[in-house]
Write a protein that binds this DNA or RNA. Structure first.
Length: 497
DNA sequence: TCTGGGGTCCTAGGACCC
DNA sequence: TCTGGGGTCCTAGGACCC
């Protein structure tokens, strides 16, 4: 806890929805919901207009449609959001070398380390200037929290929403937090909140009065102790610029539960390959393969296997995932499958030196197992790990960085169709709601909807007046998908990440 | 038409070692 | 052949966050 409020937390306001409104003049001031449009989609972000109808993040899309039938429903365009996020992060980088992104729309900044603020007045000035810069560069609003710790800065930005700035003066945190619900403390979710409530602990003051021992008894060592410290306003966690990834995973929820064992196996293998593509794209390999299965009744289980050494070989991961699937009973149907890799190592197969080292270590471990070797023997089924990685080295050499690019475009929020798409479905998929298009005659626009062989386009762009709607056949040769346009006049934005 | 996708951190039990 | 404590690794599950 520092004496001056020089830790800044930025949170963009209703980020995905606001980006869509900035991009589409006809949606400004109207309820907009961004999320998965399939039968099992959920809300990623609702605009403030949509929130007035009770729509919020993580709500099933079907429920949102009942609450706000007249809202605009759009699929997320992650490449677009990533490009805007990049601009925002660039602005943060001008304030300090210590910028810790938490997601596309959120970050901590250590203003003191950047030398741009040393007291309340200079911190507030930096925060206000940042908000003006973000608006000028992206056309979007963000809320800023300033405080002497990360936790308080985050609480402050929450209080500041939307489009505001709140500074918590060091020394005032106890009286500010005291009467508030424990739920304002980051990390206290519905389950912990309910657990505490049953113990008679509702406010932050209640937490302090309960004492550390009682909290540890209720919540366990780490959680209890950290909640107690947070309630006192004690939080010394530093802003950390570069955090290493710990795992990479992909998962799909299917529009309809999968029953056919062969189909399930095929999907697991496809997921394994996508996962490896992402793994390689991030320049990693990993040791532990995790299979995730969500059954028809929403019960979720995971099975994992740790190899002797890290791999980024698609075949090794695919086969491990397939072995793990053999351990799972899928009777009754499966709604979600996922494949992940953890225990990441900082190199890929192309890094031959590191690879040779890992193999030497693997051999040592193997020998060691018979003698004085230490700690846990090789996991079941891992015997293939070492050898197959060698086979993969040749195949891996060519793929490299490009592999990750495939993951860029995949919109996470949509569910996967249960059957191969028909030609019409494929054409309609090209015209995903909300995506930008260009027509040879009418110019720039975006897809308002598609179905029964037709696509409806609204012709407008970020800097134009609200435009009008026209409908075309899905295979109209004059119509083609296009890149997002800059949100601000003369802005360099928009291009895919 | 109930409930996405990508992460992080923690706990708890068992194996194994010293 | 009875007790024991500490530490690491692995697996499975759960809470939480955006």
């Amino acid at each position: 806890m520092r004496a001056a409020p020089t830790i800044l937390h930025l949170d963009m306001d209703a980020f995905f929805a606001a980006a869509e409104q900035a991009s589409k003049p006809s949606l400004r001031g109207k309820p907009v919901v961004v999320g998965g449009l399939g039968p099992r989609g959920v809300v990623a972000t609702a605009s403030y207009e949509a929130r007035r109808f009770g729509v919020h993040s993580a709500m099933p899309m079907a429920q949102a449609r009942r609450l706000a039938p007249n809202a605009a429903y759009l699929v997320p365009r992650f490449a677009f959001y990533r490009a805007i996020s990049g601009q925002v992060m660039e602005l943060l980088g001008r304030l300090s070398p210590l910028v810790e992104p938490l997601s596309l729309d959120e970050a901590f900044v250590d203003l003191e380390a950047g030398g741009v603020a040393e007291d309340s007045a200079s911190a507030r000035a930096a925060g206000e200037q940042l908000r003006r810069d973000i608006l000028a560069v992206t056309g979007l609003t963000g809320s800023v929290g300033l405080a002497g710790s990360k936790m308080l800065a985050k609480i402050a930005s929450e209080e500041a929403k939307p489009d505001g700035l709140v500074l918590i003066e060091p020394g005032t945190e106890r009286e500010l937090l005291g009467p508030r619900s424990v739920r304002i403390i980051p990390g206290i979710g519905p389950a912990t909140g309910e657990h505490l409530r049953r113990a008679g602990i509702v406010t932050v003051t209640d937490v302090v009065e309960a004492g550390e021992d009682e909290l540890v008894r209720l919540l366990g060592r780490a959680h209890g102790a950290s909640l107690y410290r947070m309630a006192l306003g004690h939080d010394d966690r530093p802003v950390v610029a570069e955090r290493d990834a710990k795992s990479v995973s992909v998962e799909d929820t299917f529009d309809v539960d999968l029953h056919d064992r062969l189909r399930i196996r095929l999907e697991v293998e496809r997921l394994a390959e996508r996962c490896v593509a992402r793994l390689r794209g991030s320049g990693h390999s990993g040791r532990t393969i995790v299979l995730k299965v969500r059954r028809y009744d929403f019960s979720t289980l995971t099975r994992s296997e740790t190899l002797r050494g890290p791999t980024d070989d698609p075949m090794v991961v695919r086969e491990a995932a397939a072995r793990l699937l053999e351990l799972v009973d899928t009777t009754g149907g499966v709604r979600l499958l996922g494949v992940g890799v953890s225990g990441l190592a900082d190199y890929t197969q192309e890094d031959l030196f590191a690879q040779a080292e890992a193999e030497a270590e693997a051999r040592e471990a193997e020998l060691g197992d018979e003698g004085e070797g230490r700690g846990g023997g090789p996991a079941a089924g891992s015997s293939a790990g070492g050898e197959e990685r060698v086979a993969g080295a040749g195949a891996g050499a060519g793929a490299g960085a490009g592999a990750g690019a495939g993951a860029e475009g995949d919109a996470g929020a949509g569910a996967v169709p249960a059957a191969p798409p028909t030609a019409t479905e494929t054409a309609e998929r090209r015209w995903a709601a909300g995506h930008d298009v260009r027509h040879a005659v009418y110019g720039a626009g975006w897809v308002q909807g598609s179905g029964v062989g037709r696509v409806t386009v609204r012709f407008e762009e970020p800097t134009s007046a609200p435009g009008r709607v026209r409908t075309f056949p899905v295979d109209d040769p004059d119509l083609e998908p296009s890149e997002p346009l800059p949100l601000v006049p003369g802005g360099a934005t928009g291009a895919a990440a």
